[in-house]
C-alpha cells in the first residue's frame, strides 16, 4: 500500500510569530518529494503540537520559530512527545536560532537546526536517511490520503 510506505511529517509553527514563509516552503517541498505532510498553521501551543503529532502518527516533527522563544517552548514539546511515547519521532527545527543556542537544543533531542539559506533538498535527504522505515507499523489507521494537508488542533 502506497501510503504505508510514505514518510509522515508534521510541520508546526511554535510561538506567537507569523513568519510562515519558510514553514510553508518546506512543507510543500517535502510533499513534492513524496512525503505526507501535515501543516499546523501559525501560533500553535506546545500541547497542540504534541496532540497533532499523536493524532497524525508522524515520523518527523519540523518546528519552525522566529520569535526567540525556542528555549522555552521546545523543551515543552519534546517532553510532551516523550510522555506520549513518541520518543522515536525525529524532531527538527528551523527559523532564527542563534548558534549559541544550538548545543542546548541538540541536548534536548532536536536532531538538526536549519537556519536561513538551507536548501530544502538537504532537509529532505536528511529525513530520508534518518527515518527508520522498518520500525513503523503502528498508529497508521484512518490517516488522510492527501499528501499535503492541514491540521489545526482545537
Amino acid at each position: 500500500m502506497e501510503t504505508d510506505s510514505r514518510i509522515r511529517v508534521l510541520i508546526a509553527k511554535a510561538g506567537l510569530d507569523g513568519h510562515d514563509r519558510g514553514a510553508k516552503v518546506v512543507a510543500r517541498s517535502l510533499a513534492e518529494a513524496g512525503m505526507d505532510v501535515i501543516y499546523t498553521g501559525i501560533r500553535q501551543t506546545p500541547e497542540a503540537i504534541v496532540d497533532a503529532a499523536v493524532r497524525e502518527g508522524v515520523d518527523v516533527v519540523g518546528l519552525s520559530i522566529f520569535s526567540g522563544a525556542h528555549l522555552e517552548l521546545f523543551p515543552r514539546i519534546l517532553r510532551g512527545l516523550q510522555e506520549k511515547g513518541l520518543d522515536e519521532v525525529i524532531v527538527l527545527a528551523g527559523g532564527i536560532v542563534p548558534d549559541d543556542d544550538i548545543p542546548e537544543l541538540k541536548k534536548l533531542g532536536i536532531r538538526a537546526v536549519y537556519g536561513p539559506g538551507t536548501p530544502v533538498d538537504e532537509i529532505a535527504a536528511y529525513i530520508r536517511k534518518t527515518v527508520a522505515r522498518a520500525a513503523k507499523t503502528a498508529g497508521k489507521k484512518g490517516l488522510s490520503k492527501s499528501r499535503y494537508t492541514s491540521s489545526i488542533p482545537k
Binding site: G15, S67, E72
Partner: peptide
Amino acid sequence: PLAAGEVGRV
C-alpha cells in the same frame, strides 16, 4: 500562559 518565553523577545 501563551506569553511564556515571548515577553520582551522581538
